[in-house]
Amino acid sequence: MDREALLLDGGRDDGDETRDTAALAVELLGADGWRVTHLALREIEIAPCFGCFGCWVRTPGVCVIDDAGRDVARRMVQSDLLVYLTPLTFGGYSSELKKAVDRLIPNILPFFQSIDGEVHHVKRYERYPRLVAIGVAPSGPVDPEDEELFETLVHRNAINYRAPSAAACVIAASDDDAVRRDRIARVLEVDAGGGS
């Protein structure tokens, strides 16, 4: 069976912020044998989470909002790799990426358990995808504080969304092609190919 990757692209407006990086990630994963679904979230209507917890107590496992957010949640669970791509936004995710991420909570159970001395939710499914996040800073050089914050956020998310493993990197839009290719290949754990 093919390995499935889901790329959630949180580029805003016309998508300029992430277009090249998304294309590079799709190319590198494809060359490594992954089947990639690339969702440009700015083009997809996904209502914001209402915070009603209906996806836990009313229609368990399915969001009460019937729109493309459900489709993203289904694809997430059925993937082996989940890639978040986002313009670095105050060290975190853009609103476009986050509208999809907020709608993934149906995929965990409401029940609480202790993980490493903190409360988190119990798994709904046996398997979850590895999480890789790529942040694109609008201009270089990348602020190390932003990078560290982004990595922390991704690792916190991996605990909450029960990813078996996680990695993150931040690249600058102004990095040259070879540098970007190399960093993205490394975080995706694939070969950088001829371009590096």
């Binding site: 914001p48 936004t89 975190g92 853009s94 609103s95 986050k98 991420v101 993934l104 909450n160």
Partner: peptide, 20 residues
């Protein structure tokens, strides 16, 4: 705001993006 997946709810981030 409430904490949503270790960060803010999407529309709250949108508000901050506009302000910044």
């Amino acid at each position: 705001a409430p904490l949503y997946v270790d960060s803010l709810p999407a529309p709250a981030i949108r508000g901050l993006e506009l302000i910044a």
